[in-house]
Design a protein around this nucleic acid. Structure first.
Lengths: 153, 153
DNA sequence: CAAATCTTGATGAATCAAGTCAGGAATCTA
DNA sequence: TAGATTCCTGACTTGATTCATCAAGATTTG
């Protein structure tokens, strides 16, 4: 798994929506400003996530986006797969994005066997972790004191 | 971590060299033929691995490549990093290929914290696994019976 | 010297990543 | 109803990267 800038933006944007779970919708401009994401680009990303059924939108002056399901029911795996594709390091070990590779016998390819373990490990982690967990972790990190950059009196 | 075709070729080629550890050198053409890798492309890849100190070469009619160290001392992590770069899903959590990301406070970025765990897990796996392990696994898989594709009498 | 090999550097086509743009459609408020 | 604000749609641009291919040179052995 390699996260593109697009994927990073998607996760950061959804984290904002997860944090505002109570609100009706959050306008895109708010997300763009808060997370410093180019607005036009974010437009494209959110539209993709809507097509994927991850978010819902509302038009007009009171418009914006919100999560289509509770944050605790949206695993990071789902988002990453929609935006950046396979979690697997090789597409021949991907479940959802499987592609045949060039080795003669997949069933007995040592490299494939190793990469399958990597895939399974990463997929399990990303499947377990949800947007709600991400928000919770952000709050926990916020609670920590600022790094003592300059602590001399 | 996402493995490019280049990275896959590199690992497969080195697996051949590891298997022929006794031999003086293995000519590139042998590797290219056995693993079905375009020769010109393999040339480029092996040259890179030589610059990285992973393989040694010998010119002339008896020329070829061999591992610069015992296969058991070459972790997959080393190879992948040289050919495909960072193991981390985000460069802001990479040790060797660190790049600052756009979030305001890295130390308290939830996404970074999660991806750091992924990186640590993947890096540990790839650091532990060596070329020798890869060869051993290939042999173990070879020992398995052929898949019963057609078992009807 | 001839043949096989690695060495070096250039080149090329296709694809992708990141971002931009224009014009349209929906929705609310005055 | 007008106007402001928002999302919707699809095309486009720019630069880098990926996956190679090629030519000419250097080295080594028979």
């Amino acid at each position: 798994m390699k996260l593109s800038v697009r994927g990073e933006y998607a996760l950061r944007a959804l984290q904002v929506l997860a944090r505002h779970s109570g609100d009706a919708v959050v306008p895109m401009q708010t997300i763009a400003t808060e997370q410093n994401i180019p607005r036009r680009f974010l437009e494209q990303i959110l539209h993709g996530l809507k097509a994927a059924g991850v978010v819902e939108s509302r038009r007009g002056i009171t418009g914006g986006y919100r999560l289509a399901r509770p944050a605790s029911e949206i695993p990071l795996a789902t988002i990453i797969r929609h935006v950046d594709g396979a979690l697997a390091p090789l597409s021949c070990v991907s479940h959802q994005f499987y592609e045949k590779c060039s080795c003669p016998d997949e069933a007995r390819c040592a490299l494939r066997s190793v990469m399958k373990e990597v895939r399974d490990t990463v997929a399990a982690m990303m499947e377990r972790m949800t947007l709600a967990d991400l928000v919770a972790r952000a709050e926990a990190l916020q609670a920590q004191p600022m790094e003592p950059v300059d602590f001399v009196i």
